[in-house]
Design a protein around this nucleic acid. Sequence first.
DNA 1: CTTAGAATGTGTCAGCTTAACACTTTAAAT
DNA 2: ATTTAAAGTGTTAAGCTGACACATTCTAAG
Lengths: 246, 246
Amino acid sequence: MCYFDTIIPLCCIESMLQQYPHDNRVLVATDCIIFGFDGEDLKVLLIKRNFEPEKGKWSLMGGFLNENEDLEVGAKRILHELTGLENVYMEQLQAFGEVKRDPVERTVSVSFYALINIHDHDTELARANNAYWVSLDKKPSLIFDHDRMVTMALQRLRYKAALHPIGFELLPEKFTIPQLQRLYEAIYSNTFDRRNFSRKILSTKLLLDTGEKNEQGATKKAILYRLDQERYQRQFNAFLNFISDF
Amino acid sequence: MCYFDTIIPLCCIESMLQQYPHDNRVLVATDCIIFGFDGEDLKVLLIKRNFEPEKGKWSLMGGFLNENEDLEVGAKRILHELTGLENVYMEQLQAFGEVKRDPVERTVSVSFYALINIHDHDTELARANNAYWVSLDKKPSLIFDHDRMVTMALQRLRYKAALHPIGFELLPEKFTIPQLQRLYEAIYSNTFDRRNFSRKILSTKLLLDTGEKNEQGATKKAILYRLDQERYQRQFNAFLNFISDF
DNA sequence: CTTAGAATGTGTCAGCTTAACACTTTAAAT
DNA sequence: ATTTAAAGTGTTAAGCTGACACATTCTAAG
């Protein structure tokens, strides 16, 4: 049977052509809000742009989505290009699609935030991309709607970290409770009572005493803990609530 | 000065042409997860498709994004087309962008969930679009990744409603505490103690006694309350925590 | 070598919130 | 009038939170 002998409804032709009749196709990009913690401040990895558009200004790390590339895959590719890291905690924030958000051409950006151990990333790659760790409270203003992305990512991180134990993603494998507290204080821009914090954390049974002690510091050495991975998986959906003081 | 007298760098030409050199442009669509509450169950508004692709199957209401249309605007347009409603509580869920999620052509869908008063919507429009309210626990399977969208929207609603007073968006202007409780029980697929629930809700001071009583029911009439709009705005970020029993 | 200072680990307790449960009130149906 | 079912209000023990005290460990200064 020959197709050309019969009348073919329009929709079938479309289907054969693998195309919808709608013609408003736009670029899709990914921007990554990469969080790190240096023991003092919560930081984001920002790019001092040495390329157009908006050369010379600060922005998030981003890039266009390739053909045959899932959103998550694209975001992880871009994260890998900048940090050399894989298997990182990453979650979609949301899509940003204002018509005029990118002055060059309409681009819908799907933003992801990532939590990494700041000491694990490839400093060569960062240097090559002109990337710098910047404390959230000293953050310069960024191009396009990237400021809003960072603000919303922090808000999302606050929600998430209040209910799920994702803070650990920002720490080295072995860490002390005071370190963990400084992290939470950085995330929530708040201070917590040292004793209550310790009690709350230990009550989750998520920490295992490694038997070792922190070597840094000129005072009493703190106990180094590590995550109980099994419990971590099991209890992921039942953690604490740090929003209370908030 | 004439532009054609000078050598123009490529990037400037691109800028003048308002185009990036990247060429992977894709369709962007919006799908809406529309929640409603009929006093018994939490429901979603679903389309029995009488059009291609996947004609005859169930799906969410969706549509392509137009030129010069913001994501939110597109989503509200689509919601309006189906329900006739404006000024509805709506929030972006996230973007869904798997390469093969739409078999016809690659399409990135940005999903939004909306909370509406089920009795406010235009039933003519719904009928015209072949739309039906379906209880979440009797939901048929949907096309593409729409099942996952509904699942994630419910999850997001649970998070949000635990911390913010958005449940009221699903109720009529005047409502009783038992109605509100049935709503929360539907959202969390859980039961709560009547007396504790009442106390908890009233302690927020978010409800105002209208002086009226519910006319339905063959037993004691419940007090009709309405939202204290001013307090609602003010306290939006400090509500309750219903996750505890969860 | 001793001691001051600073950070860590552990303990206490009052006040509040939560969870579980009992009783009273209201209105329709018999 | 009585029954029945749902709504409103009250009580109490247990647990958690927030505020605070004390003891321990380490370095560095005297």
